[in-house]
Write a protein that binds this DNA or RNA. Structure first.
Length: 269
DNA sequence: CCCGTGCCCTGGCGGC
DNA sequence: TGCCGCCAGGGCACGG
C-alpha cells in the first residue's frame, strides 16, 4: 500500500511528466472514485493547466492554474501515462486527457478517492483535521504528549494520520522494530525516551525509503514503471518465520487493531 | 470525546 | 481443474 515514500515517489515522477500540461478532456468509467458530482468535477477541471504536483501526507495534490485536485491512492491506486488512443484497461477508472497523452488512474480495489477543491483555504481546512505533522516535522515532545493521552496500542496511534501523517502498516512495523518497542505497548507505559527513538527512526526510515523510491511489494507497485527498492531493507515487515536480524528470534505475525503486524518478541519487549 | 467495529472492493490463495 | 470462502487494509460512518 502506498505510504508517504511511495506517494512522494509518484509525486516526483508525475510532477516532471505533467507539469504545465492542460487537461483537455476527462472520462470516468467508474465515477464513484470521484467524490464530487461527476459533471461538476469535469466542468471544474476542464481546460485547466496542471501547475504542480504536491503532496500532503499520503495525499497527492494537483495544483491547477485555478483549483486543486486532491487524490488519495488508498491501497492500490496508481497512475499511468499512456498514448491518447490506447484502449482502456479494466481497472482504469478515471482518465485525464492531456493533449498529447493520457493520464490514467488505475485502482483494482476502487478504494482511492479524487476530489476537486476550489480554493487553497478549502484544501487546508480539509487536511487540517486529518493530518498531523509529517515525520520530517515531528517533535519528540509533541509525540510523547499524544502517545500518553491515547488508550490504545502504540501501533494504532502511529497509524493515526492526525497524529503523524504518512506512516502506514509497513513503515510503522519497521519504526517500532528499530525503536525496540512492542506494537501492543500502551501509550501510558511509554517514556519520553521511547517517543524520542520513534521520532528518530520514523525520520530515518521515511528518508531512506524515499531515497530508494519506496517499497514495492505484492499489493503495490509504483506508477509509470518505477520499482521501489526499499523492500530489500525491510527488517521485520513480512518476515514471519524468519530469524530477527538482531537476535535471531523467529519473527511472529500478530494482529494489532485488526492489522497484520510483524514483531520480534525478544527485541521489542 | 474516545475508542472499537464494520464497510467499501477485488484478486489471490488455501482447502477440498 | 475448479470452485468456494476468506483475507488484505486506509479512512470514514456509526454506535456504545
Amino acid at each position: 500500500m502506498p505510504e508517504l515514500p511511495e506517494v512522494e515517489t509518484v509525486r516526483r515522477i508525475l510532477h516532471k511528466q505533467i507539469e504545465n500540461k492542460i487537461i483537455v478532456d476527462l472520462i470516468s468509467p467508474y465515477q464513484a472514485i470521484i467524490k464530487n458530482d461527476f459533471l461538476e468535477f469535469k466542468k471544474n477541471i476542464l481546460n485547466k493547466t496542471i501547475i504542480a504536483v504536491d503532496r500532503a501526507g499520503k495525499y497527492l495534490i494537483f495544483v491547477l492554474n485555478q483549483g486543486f485536485i486532491l487524490i488519495h491512492l488508498r491501497m492500490e491506486g496508481k497512475f499511468y501515462l499512456k498514448p491518447f488512443e490506447e484502449g482502456l484497461d479494466k481497472h482504469e477508472h478515471v482518465i485525464f486527457y492531456l493533449h498529447d497523452q493520457s493520464l490514467r488512474y488505475h485502482d483494482v480495489r476502487k478504494f482511492g478517492t479524487i476530489e476537486y477543491f476550489e480554493t487553497k483555504e478549502a484544501v487546508k481546512e480539509y487536511l487540517r483535521t486529518r493530518l498531523g505533522p509529517e515525520p520530517s516535522e515531528l517533535e519528540p515532545n509533541y509525540l510523547f504528549e499524544k502517545i500518553k493521552q491515547k488508550k490504545q496500542p502504540i501501533k494504532t496511534t502511529l497509524l493515526d494520520q492526525s497524529v503523524i501523517a504518512g506512516l502506514g502498516n509497513i513503515y510503522v512495523d519497521e519504526v517500532l522494530f528499530l525503536s525496540k518497542i512492542h506494537p501492543l505497548a500502551q501509550g501510558v507505559d511509554l517514556t519520553e525516551d521511547d517517543a524520542k527513538r520513534i521520532v528518530i527512526n520514523a525520520k530515518k526510515v521515511i528518508d531512506e525509503a524515499i531515497e530508494l523510491g519506496g517499497t514495492t511489494i505484492r499489493s503495490y507497485t509504483a506508477s509509470l514503471g518505477v520499482t521501489g527498492r526499499f523492500q530489500t531493507k525491510l527488517k521485520i515487515h513480512l518476515k514471519k518465520g524468519e530469524p530477527c536480524v538482531v537476535c535471531g528470534t523467529i519473527i511472529e505475525k500478530i494482529k494489532v487493531g485488526g492489522r497484520g503486524t510483524y514483531v520480534c518478541q525478544n527485541c521489542q519487549n
